[in-house]
């Protein structure tokens, strides 16, 4: 009797584990296959891509990449995106730390009220147009700073940073330093900031990803070609199905078809190029990213 029920459990375990492994395998493949395909296609020749490239490059060549780097818009977009990301992230981190640190000090009067002011913006916001009108009023539309200022603080990340300060720096430490004659500025500069390298890394990485991948701000605020980030350039190239009419009239049908194939290949290479900076950072990012989620989880 006992033996029989034991066997039934084993069968149940085996079928359960089969489902578990199926889920693991399917979700990994689901993620892996499209990524491999994009990489493979970007390193193939344009003729091969049209005939079908699956998971391994055919007629290995760098035509796509040469075509991408010959495009001045792409280079400009790349440089712009780097600038937005570097300057924007620096600004974000400073602003977030400046908000998080005072709010983590329990001696601050009115700390709950100020915190509520921040949290409320997560639940309710003015929306697209009123925010646009404010940016417009400040004469920031189509300037570099319109990509930086409106998103200066992500309240969710600010709460994570605040929780970090609360958990890692005990109040006694502040009090001890205070008795030794340090004022709040000195506590901030010589105690809080040196101890906050981990949280600065978390913030910087998350803000950097946000900036690099940003499309929304640019589509709202940036008008002139010279200031467009790479995401917008990529989008415009994706939408452009036809090559300039001027250059088209001069060539025959065969040439036209070739250019069309090349433009299809170029899109693959461009996709890779606009993702590479994040993927190169990824191994470093991942550790801190998960770290960041954990700090948030403690709060939740």
């Amino acid at each position: 009797m006992v033996k029989k029920s034991r066997r039934r459990f084993e069968i149940a375990d085996v079928s359960y584990l089969t489902v578990v492994w199926l889920i693991i395998i399917i979700s990994s493949l689901m993620v892996l296959l499209p990524i491999l395909h994009v990489l493979a296609a970007s390193f193939s020749s344009s003729e091969a891509v049209i005939r079908g490239v699956y998971l391994w490059p055919r007629d290995f060549c760098l035509d796509g990449y040469t075509a991408v780097f010959q495009n001045s818009k792409v280079l400009r977009g790349f440089v712009n995106s780097v600038l937005y990301t570097v300057i924007g992230t620096a600004f974000n981190v400073v602003m977030t730390i400046c908000a998080a640190y005072p709010l983590a000090r329990n001696k601050l009067h009115g700390r709950k009220t100020i915190m509520m002011l921040f949290v409320f913006t997560m639940l309710f916001s003015g929306g697209m147009i009123p925010t646009y009108l404010v940016v417009h009023r400040l004469k920031l539309v189509d300037t570099f700073w319109s990509m930086i200022f409106p998103t200066a603080i992500n309240v969710y990340l600010m709460i994570i940073a605040r929780t970090f300060f609360e958990n890692t720096i005990p109040n006694d430490l502040y009090e001890a330093a205070h008795i030794d004659g340090a004022n709040d500025f000195q506590l901030f500069l010589y105690i809080a900031i040196p101890l906050s390298k981990a949280i600065c890394a978390v913030l910087a990485l998350r803000y950097a990803v946000q900036h690099w991948n940003d499309y929304y701000q640019a589509v709202l605020y940036i008008r002139s070609d010279g200031r467009q980030p790479l995401q917008i350039v990529l989008r415009n190239i994706m939408l452009a199905t036809n090559i300039d009419i001027d250059s088209m009239s001069a060539m025959d049908v065969e040439q036209y078809a070739k250019l069309k194939q090349l433009s299809y290949l170029l899109k693959y290479s461009l996709i890779v190029i606009s993702t590479i900076p994040m993927l190169v950072l990824y191994p470093f990012i991942q550790k801190y990213f998960i770290h960041g989620v954990m700090i948030g989880a403690i709060k939740g």
């Binding site: 002011l117 916001s125 003015g126 200066a152 603080i153």
Partner: peptide, 15 residues
């Protein structure tokens, strides 16, 4: 940060 919050979050809410 507070000035930022007022300008870019609360003024639009008023807007």
């Amino acid at each position: 940060p507070l000035i930022w919050l007022i300008i870019f979050c609360y003024v639009p809410m008023g807007g």
